[in-house]
Amino acid sequence: MDYNKFEDRISRWIENDMDVKERKEFEKFLSDHPEYQSKVEEVRNTISVMNQAPILKVSSDFDANLNQRLKTLGLNENIKKSIFGFSNQNFAYLTLTLGAIFVLTSFLIQSNSTYMFADKELDSKEILIPSDSLEIKDEMDEMKDVDLLNNIDGSFVNDEQ
């Protein structure tokens, strides 16, 4: 291993991101060149300082400013609200379920009524047997004759007037 390879692997060695063979090779180089051990320590210390660095915090009016910007852009209105206490997704599921129940119920009702009407149709056919039909036809003809006579009488009276 040369110095460049050693330098390329410092972070990986510190973070234990090496296989056994690489680690042994790296550690052998370090023991052969103790002058480079300080290099590893410097990198390790730098990482440590960064890990302990203070956290920069947003200013106290950050939330208010963000809120104001959202308001200015009219984005508050875009947020999807819950519907009747259900989230949008749950409301959609509920609607779909109710819709499916409605379609199924409608289908069942329609199927039942088809059978019922079919029965009624059958009943009416049984009533309208040929003999009955003839009787009704005769009765209707008689009624037509009476109407005709009434009209004739009426027109006669009118003509006289």
């Binding site: 330098e7 410092i10 972070s11 990986r12 410097e42 990198v43 210390n45 730098t46 990482i47």
Partner: peptide
């Protein structure tokens, strides 16, 4: 990424030294 982080750390540590 690993290479950049390593190079960055080495440069920083040299400056810190």
């Amino acid at each position: 990424i690993k290479s950049r982080i390593n190079r960055g750390r080495i440069q920083l540590s040299e400056k810190m030294k």
